Computed example of a mutant assay.
Amino acid sequence: METALTLQRTRSLRWRWLWLTPPVLFAALIAGTAIGETSISMDTVLKVLANQLLGADYAVDRIDAGIIWNYRLSRAIVAASCGAGLALAGVVLQALLRNPLADPYLMGISAGASTGAVGVTVAGIGAGAFSLSAGAFAGAGLAFGLVVLLAQAAGGGSCNGRSAQASGAIILAGIAGSQLFNALTAFIIARSASAEQARSIMFWLLGNLSGVRWDDVVLAVPVSLAGLLVCLWHRRALDVFTFGADSAASMGIAVRPVRGILIACVALVTAVMVSMVGAIGFVGLVIPHAMRFIVGSRHTRLVPASALAGAVFLIGSDILSRILVPGQVLPIGVITSLIGAPTFALIMIRGMRAR
């Protein structure tokens, strides 16, 4: 009886965390809009938002209104979308590959997307026929395909998750593929970019939200929401995939089509986010693990919790990138790594002790 009550209380607490997250996300968006290089009062922020969204007529300084609406709010929304998308990508990859180290950055998908984006913008690949996002998507797909082929050649299988050896081979192949595409990106920059382009691209590759505007919001928000819906639709399949492809097949899941849809979703979301803000590490690695401690491993709860937590995490990292060094904006990838690396170490130590 006591065990049943304990389980019921635990489940209630986990669902309560999910209900608390949307208000936290809203608060994070407001904080991302209010905090920055220039100090703007919360009252001014709320007045500008009321003017723009509700048609109010509060008297506010035009410069402050421009900073809030045209720069900070769009930046915070894109940060939230990217954080949610990358966290979802980590959830999917960790379930499909049955490996806690799987994420878009480690699997080479982010590196491939960066190569595709740089190839289109700097080297002129496609002669203008491809957009930045299309080039990033092509690079992400090519990188993951190469990782799978390399894992097969090493005798690790084709990401079917049947053994720890197969999963480990894919991770090692992902590391090799990531290094390869990072080298290709550096080669393209050195070969085709001017000195000014090289500086801006290298800053962008570390994660840069300074250039995002409302046009990026129009792309980032639908893509992240679509990724969330796809993951929620296949949430039960993700639960089964954690036990292996054979288990999924025995449960009546069409393994290849479902896995193909989920991998394509991960590649698309990662490519779009990388094309806008560059390669940002540790979001897809740390957030899913942190959320498993809070809401459990069932993807019905894990998917929305990871998306919302990833959004809040990247907004907070963006705020830190603007205020940590006075008068200078740091690449957001530096902040996520400084926070993500020790956090992942703590999660890993706690997980090992729990065993």
Results as ranks from 00 to 15, higher is better:
N182C: 03
R350D: 04
R72D: 02
V277H: 06
S133F: 09
L308E: 04
A102I: 02
V221C: 00
G207N: 10
L262W: 10
Q152M: 13
A151T: 06
A290I: 02
V329N: 01
L209A: 03
S110Q: 12
K47A: 00
L106A: 11
L314F: 03
I261A: 14
D216K: 10
D57F: 11
L314N: 02
I67Y: 07
A311I: 01
D57Q: 15
A311K: 08
I40P: 11
T38D: 07
Q179E: 11
D64A: 15
G139K: 06
A254Q: 11
G145R: 06
M107D: 05
G126E: 11
S74W: 06
W233T: 03
A173F: 03
S110L: 05
A271F: 12
A138I: 08
L330F: 07
V295Q: 05
V325D: 09
G227Q: 03
L25I: 06
W17D: 00
M273K: 03
V147R: 10
A153R: 15
G124I: 04
L96V: 10
L20P: 05
G36E: 03
P22E: 00
G126R: 14
V92W: 04
Q165K: 13
E37I: 11
I201R: 07
R199G: 04
L285M: 04
M202Q: 15
S178Q: 14
L229T: 03
W15V: 09
I280P: 09
N182V: 01
N208W: 05
A254Y: 06
V334N: 10
L262V: 01
L346Y: 13
P100K: 06
D239L: 12
L238V: 02
V325W: 08
L53Y: 10
S321F: 01
T6A: 15
A186D: 13
V45E: 12
G85W: 01
A305W: 04
L229R: 06
G156K: 08
I189Q: 13
L54T: 00
S39R: 15
W15H: 15
S306A: 13
A164W: 13
L314W: 01
A248N: 13
W17S: 01
M1V: 00
I201W: 05
L314S: 01
T38Q: 14
A76Q: 08
L149E: 00
I171E: 08
V148E: 05
L106G: 02
F241R: 07
M1G: 12
C82S: 10
W204S: 01
P342M: 05
A102C: 05
L97A: 11
A186I: 00
